[in-house]
C-alpha cells in the first residue's frame, strides 16, 4: 500500500481537480487514495476544530478525532503496529487525562483568549520552528541513508507481513541508544511528576496492609466473663479496637 507515495509526489493537482470536478476526481482516484484524502481531510478538519472550538471539552474531542484519523492513515500506509500504538498511548492514556483535567477544571475561555495577542509572537516562533523542522525532515528524507538492518530486511519494511518484527529489529539495533535514552527521559519525567505531587500532609489516615494482615486474634480479641447487666471496668474505659497489653 506504500505505492501511494510513489504515484503522487504532490497532492496539489489532485486538490485543484477536486475543487473543479468532484465526482470525476473520485472516479479517478483509486479507493486507497480516496480513503487517504478522506482521512487526511478529517484529520485536518479535526485539527482546526481543536483550536477553534469554544468549549474546551469539545477541543479534546476534536483532538481525539484527529488521533483516530491519524491512526487510520497509519493503517492505510500498512503500519498497523504504529496505528494501534497511537490509539493505545494517545487515546487510551494521554487524551483521557486531558479530558479529565479539562472536565474537572472549570476553564473560562474568555480569560484564556485574553492573552492571545500577547502570546502570539512567541507562539508564532515556536510554531514556525516546528513547521521548519517538519519541512527539513521531509526534504532530507529522500537523501538520508537507510539503516543497515532495514536494508537487510528488504527495501520496504513496512510492506513486510509483520511490521512489528521490522520495527523491533530497527529499534533494538540501529537506534538502540536513542530508544533507551527516550525511555530513560520518560522515566525521569514520570518520577518528577510523582515527586511533585507527593507531599507529606498531616492528618491523613492511611491503611497499612502489612499491619492488618499481621494482626493476630490474641492481640485483638479477648474473652471476658460478665454477668447480665454488668459492665467490665476495662472495656468501658478503652476503645474496643485498641489491644490491651497484659490484660487477661
Amino acid at each position: 500500500m506504500g505505492e501511494f507515495a510513489k504515484r503522487h509526489q504532490s497532492p496539489w493537482p489532485i486538490i485543484v481537480c477536486f475543487a473543479l470536478n468532484f465526482s470525476k476526481v473520485v472516479a479517478l482516484l483509486s479507493p486507497i487514495d480516496f480513503l487517504f484524502y478522506l482521512f487526511a481531510g478529517f484529520t485536518l478538519a479535526a485539527g482546526v476544530g481543536v483550536i477553534t472550538a469554544r468549549n474546551p471539552v469539545y477541543s479534546v474531542f476534536f483532538l481525539i478525532a484527529a488521533f483516530l484519523n491519524a491512526a487510520a492513515l497509519f493503517l492505510l500506509a500498512g503500519a498497523e503496529f504504529l496505528a494501534f500504538i497511537l490509539i493505545i498511548v494517545y487515546l487510551g492514556a494521554v487524551a483521557v487525562l486531558f479530558l479529565f483535567v479539562v472536565m474537572m477544571l472549570d476553564i473560562n475561555l474568555a480569560t484564556v483568549r485574553a492573552g492571545f495577542v500577547r502570546y502570539l509572537p512567541i507562539a508564532a516562533v515556536v510554531g514556525g520552528i516546528f513547521a521548519a523542522q517538519l519541512i527539513i525532515m521531509l526534504l532530507i528524507w529522500q537523501q538520508s541513508e537507510t539503516p543497515p538492518t532495514l536494508n537487510a530486511l528488504g527495501n520496504s519494511p513496512m510492506n513486510q507481513p509483520n511490521n512489528v518484527y521490522a520495527l523491533g529489529r530497527v529499534l533494538y539495533t540501529d537506534y538502540f541508544v536513542a530508544f533507551q535514552t527516550a525511555g530513560i527521559i520518560l522515566l525521569i519525567a514520570m518520577i518528577g511528576a510523582i515527586v511533585l505531587t507527593l507531599r507529606p500532609r498531616a492528618g491523613i489516615k492511611t491503611q497499612v496492609i502489612s499491619q492488618q494482615v499481621s494482626r493476630k486474634s490474641s492481640q485483638s480479641v479477648r474473652l471476658v466473663d460478665l454477668k447480665l447487666g454488668q459492665t467490665h471496668p476495662t472495656t468501658a474505659a478503652t476503645a474496643p479496637t485498641e489491644p490491651q497489653e497484659g490484660s487477661a
Binding site: 503496529f81 493505545i88 487510551g92
Partner: peptide, 11 residues
Amino acid sequence: DINVGLLYFFA
C-alpha cells in the same frame, strides 16, 4: 485475522 490482533483488542 490480523497480525496485531492483541493490540487491536487492547486499543
